[in-house]
Amino acid sequence: MYIQIKDLCFRYGNSKMNTIRNFNLSVNQGQIVSILGESGSGKSTILRLLCGLETPSQGVISIGGKTVTDDRSFVLPEKRGIGMVFQDYALFPHMTVAENIQFGLKGFGRKAKKQRVEEVLDLVNMKDFSKRYPHELSGGQQQRIALARALAPKPSLLLLDEPFSNLDADLQIKIRSELRDIIKKTGITSIFVTHDREDSKAIADRIITMRDGSAYDWDSICTIKSEFPEEQPMTIS
């Protein structure tokens, strides 16, 4: 298993109930997993726990064989090597597209940086936009840059938080398939969160449904769609 989440629990400081209750999930390398759930189901929190922006109260997370958190340890988010596309993209408004993408390329030489920026811009079909500022781009373009920025440092895992929620309906359908192609081209393991069943169906290899802080079921469609039919379904917890 590439990613293992065991008995994960989490509670926000001001709430009495656990937002995440004994959450379990394992993901194979290269798989695109969708976490489907209504707002408040805790699906975004799973992403924040995976990348280290929140600290779980209990449970173990390991990525690529390395334990990133358990009872005795916690790896800071900047050390986890995970890429994330935020719901509203969070492109730095004071940097150009190229500068945004370069931002994550720590330890690259100048030439290597430039080359990598060109590569990922090419990947998302935005080659001509490197000098633009984020506010000069449309919503769909911003999203592609956010994706390019997350992919540039070659992360071990890509997380996408509601990637389509800020797009117009017709744009959404077009970008869905595009997004799946890009991710598949890089072969990166990805987890994305959505409240839209259609999004999940269009992109994911596998769909997890969340309710009240636990992954409670395989979605039935997903068994048909899954590229990994041999895998055991989730235990109900």
Binding site: P77, G81, F86
Partner: peptide, 19 residues
């Protein structure tokens, strides 16, 4: 969100603050 985005791109708290 911008702070979090920066940390996901490998910058620590202090680097994020200045950049």
């Amino acid at each position: 969100q911008f702070t979090e985005a920066s940390r996901m791109l490998g910058m620590n708290v202090t680097q994020t603050f200045f950049k």
